[in-house]
Design a protein around this nucleic acid. Structure first.
Lengths: 212, 212
DNA sequence: TTTAATTTAAACATCTGATGTATGGATGGT
DNA sequence: ACCATCCATACATCAGATGTTTAAATTAAA
């Protein structure tokens, strides 16, 4: 087995695992040399083969890019699971506190804002607009953070929401997923309105678990 | 107000909000022109100012990079109202999870780092150096965040620590305060080392309450 | 209205880093 | 010894980034 074949397999694996997505630029040859601990000729041999196969596309002066997907579903799920757990853990910690405080301190204006965003979420679902859906979803949770009355917590969550947005975009969340969790979101809003912290906690739990 | 000042504010905001992290390359001038809808001179004027201020660092032929972190204005502003309660609430939420996870996942290297920072904290106390003391204190808690094994949580806490630093400086924490809480910090580190989450929780409670 | 500062636009230089190409040497199996 | 493989180096070529200069258009102030 030639060395370049090992590199080919490694690059293919990186593509199928999701570390290298379609359209993304792969590392430059010098960097690949360090990563795979081989000479430049070997790297170029591998790239040439993958390029002929249509998997990669090279552009002189610019770089080499992934031209096609090589999907391995089970593997991508497993590899993203670690990062996924981390994000969800942090999210759960923040949202639990947010919801608890929101039940105590929510004002009428907060409830209006929450309902408004829930409507936007539903509209985006029926219109099959995924990005708007994710935006509305996160905006809704931010509105809960603000309703908590703790501005520091709200600012921190707003910062964290950037991570969530990036996270959603990577996961390719289906509209169906948002559809399924819509009732839980409405229940959560209602519980906060009624200041029923026990019920709110249950709905939140449901929302967070729907992510699995 | 000059147009370039608006661009400066926008870039600063992007940095403080975390959209642009330290060390990352900011978009090239042509792209910034599109994003902010201004000419190249304006972009360059803004970049020049931020570069002189040490916030950005330009490298010809390569790009412009973020050189330093910027404190989140909205967060520091809240502190002026002396709403320490809010800060402590958020801190408690984050640290509780951090400590819980650190007890499970701490590696030997994490424990070494923690002990090293505790020594620095003690040295700063005996040397009566308040700033170094606060730095070591926060660095210690950051090391716990990293020991949790949750990179997302660690990043979030590191961002939040900027608020804590400001918090300490405004409160004029005395050296005596740090001295009093040193045993609790050492106890916390020992508990994490022994993976005794119950004990760790108690020490953390003590540390957080010492802030009042 | 005139004047000056600001902003824009374009052209070109320069630097960095990417791939393309060529060559020689080291290595290991046949 | 032969030969395919691999490594190392140098240089060419291309793309894209910032640096610089200049002129025109726009805006604000005198």
């Amino acid at each position: 087995m030639k060395l370049s074949d090992k590199v080919i397999a490694a690059i293919k694996k990186d593509i199928s695992s999701g570390r290298l997505k379609k359209g993304t630029k792969i590392p430059a040859e010098p960097e690949l040399m360090e990563v795979y601990q081989v000479g430049r000729s070997t790297i170029r041999e591998a790239i040439k083969t993958l390029s002929i196969a249509g998997i990669l596309k090279v552009q002189q002066g610019s770089g080499t890019f992934v031209a096609s997907k090589v999907k391995d579903e089970s593997l991508t799920q497993r590899l993203r699971r670690a990062e996924f757990e981390e994000v969800n853990t942090v999210r759960a910690v923040l949202e639990n506190e947010m919801v608890r405080l929101a039940c105590e301190n929510r004002k009428a204006a907060d409830l209006d804002r929450m309902m408004e965003l829930l409507e936007q979420r539903q509209k985006a679902i029926t219109a099959n607009q995924q990005k708007k859906c994710a935006d509305a979803d996160i905006a809704f949770h931010i509105s809960i953070a603000k309703a908590s009355g703790n501005q520091v917590l709200a600012d921190l969550y707003e910062n964290f929401s950037l991570v969530l947005l990036d996270f959603f975009s990577k996961r390719e969340q289906s509209i169906e997923h948002f559809q399924r969790s819509q009732p839980a979101h409405e229940g959560l809003a209602a519980a906060i309105a009624k200041q029923d912290d026990k019920s709110a906690e249950q709905y939140l739990k449901s929302i967070l678990h729907h992510n699995y």
